[in-house]
Simulated scan of single mutants.
Amino acid sequence: MKKIFISYSWENDEHKRLVGTIGELLESDGLEVTIDQWDLKPGDDLSLYMEKAVSESDYVLIVCSEGYKKKADNRIGGSGYEAKLITTEFSMKQNKKKFIPIYVGGVWEEVSPRFLAGNMYVNLSSLTGSESFERNYTDLLTTICGLERIKKKNIDTKERIAERLGVSKEELQFKNDPYEIKIEGIITNEVTMPKNDGSRGSALYKIPFRLNKSPNSDWKKLFLHYWDRPSSFTSMHRPGIARVEGDKILLDGTMIEEVQKYHRDTLLLAVKEANEKYNQHLKKLEIEKERLLKAERNHNDKISKLAGEIRFD
């Protein structure tokens, strides 16, 4: 059971009742609440009571008011002593989230003590039972109990649009999206059998790799170029065995062991370099397109301006 101490200033009966109401709500929700108006009896050691309440509680709720601010800032009375205890914990770099400001009305700057400057408060200024009070009180309860709201799952906007258009996600490309081809894996059921007839290369076979989408002809040319002339390769590299068909890359004349040891890295490198080069190409096309559009606009503006100045009367 979480232990809660409510720190406040005895200003008037209405304020005391409000503090008592908050305490009763917390107790009704299964929390152990300490409030001086409930617990202190004549003759009790007030300083010891406050020290134990602050140190032993899991959370300290500070009900902010003009009276509390005045006493806390000037270290007057019980509220001033509690403020001293709280700031001592702050200076010892203990859990500052333990101390939660509660706003119940007034101008925040006029009711918030200096040691709470910058702390986010819980607004319980609305009438008890109102929608606003219940929402904010629930947030307080959620914080005290260490609960977290389950976040909405990430929504793939492109996927949603594709569903509405009745096309695949891969068929869509936002204007500023990079063109990216990825290898998703080996299509194992389409790997061919080697001849193994003793002839040269008869132990080799064809291995297809699934791509995330079918690349266009320009990308295919770039990929084949970088496969045949990779920037990094081993002595086991086999130029000339790659081709692209639909959404597949085919290596025709290799073995799975070679793919595992050598060709995988070269494949990834060739795909990466083809992606980079093709995106550079797209960027140049976009710049050229903007240049031509700007030139056309300037030309049309010039024609319109001069045509308006030519009179035929």
Rank of each mutant, 00 (worst) to 15 (best):
G201R: 14
S217W: 03
W227I: 02
P239K: 03
R210W: 03
I207R: 10
S232M: 10
K248P: 00
F209N: 07
A274D: 04
T157W: 12
E163L: 10
A162L: 07
P178C: 07
K221R: 15
I187P: 01
K152Q: 08
P215A: 14
K175L: 12
G240N: 02
K261D: 03
L204D: 12
N216I: 11
P215L: 15
E180C: 05
Q173A: 12
E180N: 09
L224F: 01
P194G: 08
K220P: 00
A274I: 11
I150D: 06
G253F: 00
V259E: 03
H263R: 08
N154Q: 15
R243S: 02
V244Q: 00
R264A: 05
E257C: 07
S232W: 04
D228E: 01
R238W: 02
K169V: 15
H263D: 15
G201F: 13
Y179M: 07
R229Y: 01
D247L: 04
L222G: 02
S199T: 15
K221W: 02
Q173E: 14
I161E: 09
P230A: 08
L250T: 04
D252Y: 00
E276Q: 14
E148G: 07
E159H: 11
R160T: 06
R229D: 02
N212W: 10
I186T: 05
I241G: 03
E159V: 06
I150L: 09
A242L: 01
T254K: 08
I249L: 05
R160S: 07
Y262G: 05
E170M: 05
K195W: 08
L268W: 08
I144E: 07
A270W: 04
I183F: 06
K152G: 06
H225P: 03
I256M: 15
W219G: 07
N154E: 15
D247K: 15
I207Y: 06
D247Y: 07
I207G: 04
Y262K: 02
P239R: 01
K151P: 00
S231W: 09
I150N: 10
L211T: 09
I186P: 03
P208Y: 07
A162C: 02
P215S: 14
K182W: 05
E184W: 04
A274R: 10
F233H: 11
K153S: 14
D197R: 13
G146A: 10
D247W: 06
R229C: 00
G185C: 00
I150P: 03
E273G: 01
V191E: 04
T142D: 09
I183G: 08
E180R: 08
F223E: 00
K152W: 03
L267Y: 05
S217M: 08
R243A: 03
L269I: 06
R160W: 05
Y179R: 04
N154G: 12
N279S: 07
N189K: 14
G240K: 02
R164S: 10
L140I: 12
G246W: 01
E184H: 00
K213C: 04
F174Q: 12
A203G: 09
S199M: 13
R264I: 00
K213V: 03
S214M: 14
P230N: 09
R160V: 12
A203H: 14
E163D: 13
E184R: 09
C145W: 09
S217N: 13
K248R: 15
L268I: 07
S168H: 14
D247T: 06
G198T: 13
